[in-house]
Every structure is written in C-alpha cells, then in structure tokens.
Design a protein around this nucleic acid. Structure first.
Lengths: 248, 248
DNA sequence: ACCTGAACACCGTTCAAGT
DNA sequence: ACCTGAACACCGTTCAAGT
C-alpha cells in the first residue's frame, strides 16, 4: 500500500500537516540541472551560473543539486560537453583535409561563441565527455587522413585547442563586461575607442614601434584575427606531412 | 597647531580614550597592496588573492584597500604589470629576429609560470600597464626589424599572446589543483595516469583514431608542446616577410 | 533514495562614521 | 585625506533531518 496522498481540492484534515501546497515535486535529473544551467549561461554569462542560481531556477535549494552533480566544476564540464554536442563534424576527405580542419575550427568557434563565455571551461581541461571527444576524434581523423604523423597530430590538437579556447574567451570577454541593459555593440565601440586614444597618447620615445602602428593595433577585426591565427596553425601542421605520406 | 599626540611611554590620562595601543599605522600604499597580493599569489595561487585576504595580510580590513585600488580587477591588472616588469627584453638584431622572438616568448613563459596562474589575468586583457607595454613593444620591434608588415605584426602579437596565455594557464592549472600539502609532481603523475587509463578504455568503434594514439596523446611533455606551438607561430609569421623587406 | 533547511565559512563592495 | 566597522547581498559545500 503506497502512502496516502490528498486528493486534489480537498482541504487538509485537522491534525494532519499540509503537504506544502502544490509543490509539483518534478523529478530533478542531471539533464534538467545541466539544461537549466545552460539557460542561465546563455542569458547572463558563465559568472551568473552559480549553484544557488541554478537551484532557484529549478524552484529548489542549492543542496538539492548535489544529488545529481558532484559540485560546480562537474556542472561546468557537463555544460561544456552538452554544448559540444552541437558541433557538426565532417567525414574526412584526404584531398582537402586542411580546408576541412579550418571549417571544423570555424564551427567550434561558432558554437562556443553562441554560448557566451563557455570556452572558459574548456581552458586547461582534458576532454573526457563523449561529445568533446567526438570533436577531438574528428580533428585527429582529419590530420591523420592528411598524413600528419601521430606525434605531430597529438601536439597539434592541443595547440589548435588552446588557440580556439583563447580566441573564444577573448571574443566574449568584452561582451561579458557590457553593463546589463546596455547595447553590447555600442559599449564595445566606445570601450575600444578609449583604448585607441590611450595608445595614441603613449610616450613615443619609450614605445616608438607601438605608437607608430596604433591604427593597425586597434583595428579590431575579430574574424580577420581568427583567420590569421588559424591559417598560421594549419599551414604549420601541414608542413610536417612527410612527402611519402602526402595524399593525392 | 597640529593635533596633540601622546608621547611614547606615557599612559592615557583619565577621561581620554586610548589610541588603540601600538597600532603602527604603517601607511598603506598601492605598492604595498600589490606586493602583498603577489606574495599571496606566489604562496597559494590566484584564487587565494581576495580583497579580504590581502587586507588581512596587511593587518586591516578589506574596505581599506579601496583607497589605493579601484577594486579586485584593477588589483589583478596591477599585479600582472608588476610581474611583467621581470621580463627581460632583447635589443633587436635583424639577422636573428626569429630566434630572438622565440627567446622572448620563452622568457615570458618562464616569468608567468614562476607566479602560479597569473597568466589568467592576461587572458582577454588589452595591455595598458607600462611593463606589459614594454613587452609588447619588444615583440613588435623584433617583427618589424625582421621585415614583418605592420598589419601582420599587429595580428601576430595577438596570436602569440593568446598562445602564451593559454599555455601558461594550462601549465599551471593542474598545479593549482594539487591539494594543499601534497607534492604537486606526484599528484600530477597520478592524475595524468588516470587519464591514460580512461583514454585506453574508450570504445574503439566510436573513437578509432584517438584510441590508436593514446600514447602520443598522453605523453605530457609540456616543454615539447610549447616549442611545437611556438615554432608553428614564428614560422608562420616569418612567411609573411616580403622578399624586398627581408633583412640580410 | 532523494530532497531539504539551516548552517558554516567564505566572497566584493559600499557607506557612514571616525581621526 | 585616509582609514575603518558594520552591513549588504551574495558565494560553494556539508550535514542532519525529513519523506
């Protein structure tokens, strides 16, 4: 016989404690916790994703989350892996592995940036989640298909990962700094303009080279910078392909 | 007439409140605050550098710091710039600018890593402090001496900076994770060994490439990885030197 | 087994009040 | 002018107690 439950609409009989109204007792799951955390992330950034905030969003207290997640660090890793599930990976074509690797890098960047500063979690993290490993597998598969030696591919996946993390963090940090309610783009323009002025006002005798290229340094073309670094890295990796292993 | 001060050794006369014993009233300065913060950083890592902790170390309350520093973010930036003062920069020799740029990168890495996870502060920060700008000036001077065009040098200093930050953060994050009192090296070995096992146990049908190179991927040669990435970037930069501009 | 309230030991920052 | 105590509005995590 299961515990008796009060029927809907019935008042609590005298002497029996009320069952805390209509607390829906919606089952908490790890999935629900992670999804809620990502909603907070998308709306307010990684800093706003606190155990207390996520719990509040789920209508409970912070202690309740610890049944589904070992702590804040694990929650962050689970969030990252869930986000990584959206990254579409290619089937390797040995003829054009370099362009495919660049496209994959662009796809990773797109997905990361669409979730605010989530890339911060990836920084210095050894990937263990299934989806993060899918992405690593895809990068390695492309390089191996292109004839990149194993030891080079192993280091290259790390270098490329560092570049992607650093770029995504850099790209969202100003966005994250935008005061609530202000237009991020306008804030960004204003913010960057101040730096241009600051650099222009620097003493030319101490910083002769820098002051001679203020325009180039403050031309904030994010996509251009990303493509520049990506090209450097991919070309560098390709230079390690041994002649005998080169496809085609 | 200045306020009367009690002479040394004299007791407090009746009816006058004692002046809080021998509180040395050692003048707080921004320098003292920053130096103390760096001492905490070196001893316990960046996370331990809180306003309250630094204040405590100075024998005062957290509110007192706000007269010398606008807040925690500014304190972190001041710490980074003070650390950057220890980076020795070269006089450019156009004949060997690439090796000089690599040496400078190694020097930056050395100094950063000697101050725990300070590189985290550099991440996504536009340098404004005098010493950080000295380092940027030196990098740009080397590239310009080598004949790298302005627009390329401007992007390259950014790419190299991202690489250095990401590497230094990655290199210290496990160190930072070491439980207090445990030997970092032993902890690191143990920690890494677990990942090796984990990767080896991965399903080979889903991760065929990855499981085929577990040894290469978990061969944690930090210096090797750094040199690999550094070489990629410097060679890439050098490829943009126009023939007419190449020195020698 | 799962969930919770309350507590513990922290945060950064503000501000009125003191000297 | 500089410094401070106290307060405000937060943190992550633990744990005994409940159902």
């Amino acid at each position: 016989m299961p515990t008796a439950r009060p029927e809907r609409g019935m008042p609590t009989p005298p002497g029996r404690r009320p069952r805390k109204a209509a607390a829906p007792r919606r089952q908490l799951t790890q999935e629900a916790v992670v999804e809620t955390a990502i909603r907070v992330l998308d709306a307010e950034g990684l800093e706003a994703v606190t155990m207390r905030r996520v719990a509040q969003e789920l209508g409970t207290g912070p202690a309740s989350l610890y049944a589904h997640v070992s702590g804040k660090d694990e929650l962050r890793e689970l969030m990252l892996d869930r986000v990584a599930a959206d990254i579409r990976v290619p089937v390797p074509d040995p003829e054009r592995w370099q362009e495919q690797l660049k496209d994959l890098a662009r796809e990773i960047r797109r997905v990361y940036i669409s979730h605010r500063d989530i890339a911060m979690v990836s920084m210095g993290l050894i990937p263990t989640g299934p989806h993060l490993l899918d992405v690593a597998e895809a990068q390695l598969a492309l390089m191996r298909a292109g004839g990149v030696p194993k030891n080079i591919a192993a280091m290259a996946v790390d270098t490329l990962g560092m570049f992607l993390d650093a770029d995504a963090v850099e790209g969202t940090i100003y966005y994250a700094k935008t005061p609530a309610g202000e237009d991020p783009h306008a804030f960004f323009e204003e913010y960057f303009g101040q730096f241009r002025e600051y650099f222009a006002a620097l003493p030319a005798d101490r910083y002769p080279v820098l002051t001679g290229m203020v325009r180039e340094l403050t031309d904030a073309d994010d996509d251009g910078r990303f493509e520049f670094g990506l090209d450097l890295i991919v070309r560098g990796i390709a230079s390690y392909v041994e002649d005998g292993e080169r496809p085609g």
